[in-house]
């Protein structure tokens, strides 16, 4: 990676940065580096987007119906969805 040796040191900070977990001092120093370094800016943007894309997949998490009924059966519990105790 050309001219990227010194940027290596920023990688862990970049991860903390997207989490908003850097101290204000370190944050200021990283931000001043980001102003000058386009490559690191791209890493920040694409890292953030990577996390967002994965986070969004969680919204589609669903338990397949068959897995769900076998789970309730195994636990000897009445499935609220099947029993109609509370429908939602």
């Amino acid at each position: 990676m050309h001219e990227h040796g010194h940027c290596q040191a920023y990688l862990k900070q970049i991860s903390d940065y997207v989490d908003g977990e850097l101290s204000s001092e370190v944050c200021a120093s990283l931000e001043s580096h980001l102003k000058e370094c386009e490559n690191c800016r791209i890493v920040v943007n694409t890292l953030r987007k990577t996390i967002d894309l994965y986070h969004d997949t969680a919204e589609n998490d669903d338990l397949p119906d068959k897995v769900r009924s076998r789970l309730f059966a195994r636990l000897n519990l009445e499935d609220p969805k099947q029993g109609g105790i509370h429908g939602s």
Partner: peptide, 12 residues
């Protein structure tokens, strides 16, 4: 080992 970023492309 930590690897340096190789792909520098803004696909956002």
């Amino acid at each position: 080992e930590d690897e340096a970023p190789f792909e520098i492309l803004d696909w956002c």
